[in-house]
Design a protein around this nucleic acid. Structure first.
Lengths: 221, 221
DNA sequence: AATATTCTTGACTGGTTGGTCAGGTCTGTT
DNA sequence: AACAGACCTGACCAACCAGTCAAGAATATT
């Protein structure tokens, strides 16, 4: 047969060899992210990922040596996106702006990157067998710098004194909940959250957290 | 061979037939909860559960017809424990006491029932394939009564006006995070949280949430 | 003590899965 | 046009897993 299949039929015939390879890998990674999120690592099958990406199974093994390597790439990609999208509040001067922006961005990520969040949650829940090294190096460093920032706010009297760790966990937990537990939320809501509801939820979360650490909010919640 | 194996060697020879059956089922359910939490439904094997409970695999199928039925029983058990432990704040008069107690109990559950929380999270994250009916009936009813209570507080001016749903999700997310993401927390903490840290975390969470909805706390956080 | 019933267990099986491979096809280069 | 190397894929396989079963052992019943 030869090169018959295509991920997005009719739209990917252009590009150099390297570009096409990158595109194919992206298609597989997207499909894998979805399948891993829906079934977990053990529950996911290469066949399901193959079907989801519109490629024969053998093709997956041409681009990714094994199921575990594919999974690792998926998790790495998510981790990167998360870290990139999250260093907003380092640059901002005031706690209000910094935290509000960080929470808003994380809520946005939960909405638009639901599968990624789920894969990450799965991996950590199962003891991070694949990406333990990331937790111990990159995540730890990232966390420590944020803790330092929050502690400075606290010492300068800009916010009420709180252990920065419990605050960070609260923010992570709450925002990611909207991705990881989307199914539960949508069941209780009898359908997906509307634009308005997302905005309300984000605003309420910001409001509670900002007030909770002694900031007079500035929002509407 | 015959009745040679035993879950807790030497300690379960007493009791009636029914009691021994119940005990054996409990041992299997405990082991299953742990294994399902660690590996997910797809990743868990009946052999692993058998090893964890100290019984031959065939024995599991004597007590539970199939892997799925065993899993269902595990999830049902967790769900029941959760609901029972959670109707505290219906009886309490003041929002402060009610919420503080509810949050504290949920934090306790996260600490002592880590595996259960993880299994629940897994199930919901994967779209609740097994217990969707519970979400639509029991959980929905439970949630609606709590929403009504919070709304009454809100209308009576006892707390700041917030959509009760976003508040509930924030509480669920934050408390369960300490179970579901325990591995991440312990990695960043270089070890399990101490008694003092659990108390601090609980207090901080209470403090932020209570202040966040306009209560003057009353605690130390 | 004989019989019935519940429990235990090693060995087995049909079906599924991750991974392989040989042979084919397409594309760029000379 | 001929060649080389990258890419594609149906068919296959060894490993593994949920679930079965028949025979044996403990316990209850008469």
């Amino acid at each position: 047969m030869g090169q018959t299949h295509a991920a997005t039929p009719g739209a990917e015939k252009t590009g150099t060899r390297a570009e096409m390879r990158e595109e194919t890998e992206r298609v597989i990674l997207d499909a894998a992210e979805r399948v891993f999120a829906e079934s977990g690592f053990g529950g996911a099958t290469m066949q399901a990922i193959a079907d989801a990406s519109g490629l024969p199974k053998a093709n997956l093994h041409y681009y990714f040596a094994s199921k575990e390597r594919l999974y690792r790439r998926v998790v790495e990609r998510i981790f990167t996106i998360w870290l990139e999208a999250a260093d907003s509040f380092e640059t901002s001067a005031s706690p209000e702006v910094a935290l509000r922006q960080y929470i808003t961005r994380k809520m946005d990520l939960s909405r638009r990157h639901r599968f990624g969040s789920k894969v990450w949650a799965n991996e950590v829940m199962h003891g991070a067998p694949i990406i333990q090294d990331y937790l111990e190096t990159t995540l730890r460093e990232w966390t420590e710098t944020r803790i330092a920032v929050i502690r400075r706010w606290s010492e300068a009297g800009q916010i009420r004194p709180v252990d920065p760790r419990w605050l960070l966990y609260l923010i992570w937990a709450t925002t990611q909940h909207y991705a990881d537990f989307a199914h539960q939320i949508e069941t209780l809501n009898s359908g997906p959250l509307s634009d308005r509801q997302w905005a309300e939820a984000t605003d309420t979360v910001c409001g509670i957290i900002l007030r909770g650490i002694g900031l007079d909010d500035g929002g509407t919640a």
